[in-house]
Design a protein around this nucleic acid. Structure first.
Lengths: 152, 152
DNA sequence: AAGATTAGTTAGCATAGCTAACAATATTTA
DNA sequence: TAAATATTGTTAGCTATGCTAACTAATCTT
């Protein structure tokens, strides 16, 4: 294994980064979640809605896969969003088992309002950083995003 | 406001970083959580246990503050950890209202086993990165940790 | 001693995750 | 074509985590 040699060589670093990263992610989300609550919807719903708004209409199954969640969980998330009028169901004319879920105009508006609040909150904290530190955070996040995307 | 001028000057950057950071944190934790499940305890319990193991015994109230959670929530988290034999209660001899919560040996062992699994999982992903990218992630995380610590 | 404050718990609600089991529809195959 | 199989989504029921409101018990203040 070509990789294991490399991993061993710098294992202390990788473990340390992984640990701090995990802890930072937990505590960051705890705080941001409080802002999201002002939208009246929970994090799972907002995240699913975001996928629909930016990725377009899709079936509950696709949405569950995108959100890394089991189908029954997505059934309930979609039910909640529908109850709030943020998404609607569109039957598939060629396959009666399928339904496509689409964000409504209200859903799109709510998402963008929430996004703005959340981001302003986070941004206010990040704003205390020196330019070079902000750039460092940005670079780290971009690399992480790439890792997450390729992660299977 | 001295800050608002600076924020305006680079607001696009701050907003972008905040948004990507939020998304990366959500998706990272979704994946890591699956590893944590193998310990048989949920994320809130593991996180509280971690505070006890690394920070020493403390009261439920202090633990709630450290975890940014309300007291009744911590009551339940502690009850779960106690049921699993991972922490024990130590009465305060000078104030009968207070209790100190302490990790047991089993609790410490479980935390370190879970920590190892989680970290190996995360580290395996990070291991695909070039040394300089890993260093970038590390730097970003350390800056973030500082922001989180100072965040009120 | 009475009243106020503090620490923690209990009760009750909502969200969000899971598995198991089911219904309805499509597809494959005998 | 009829029967078996696979796919899609839902329902039911469990657990864990978050909250607020209301309570008990103990300590502190006046």
């Amino acid at each position: 294994m070509a990789k294991s040699k490399r991993k061993t060589r710098r294992s202390a670093d990788v473990v340390g980064v992984a640990d701090r990263l995990h802890s930072a992610a937990i505590h960051l989300l705890r705080r941001v979640r409080k802002q999201d609550l002002a939208t009246g919807e929970g994090p799972a719903r907002l995240s699913a809605l975001s996928v629909l708004v930016f990725g377009g209409a899709m079936t509950p199954g696709q949405l569950a896969a995108a959100e890394q969640v089991k189908p029954p969980t997505m059934t309930r998330i979609v039910a909640g969003l529908e109850r709030s009028g943020l998404v609607k169901r569109i039957p598939d004319s060629s396959d009666a088992r399928r339904v496509r879920i689409q964000a409504t105009a209200a859903g799109t508006r709510l998402l963008q309002r929430g996004r703005k609040m959340r981001i302003e909150y986070l941004a206010n904290q990040l704003d205390g950083l020196a330019d070079k530190d902000l750039a460092s955070v940005d670079e780290g996040v971009e690399i992480l995003a790439r890792v997450l995307q390729e992660w299977k």
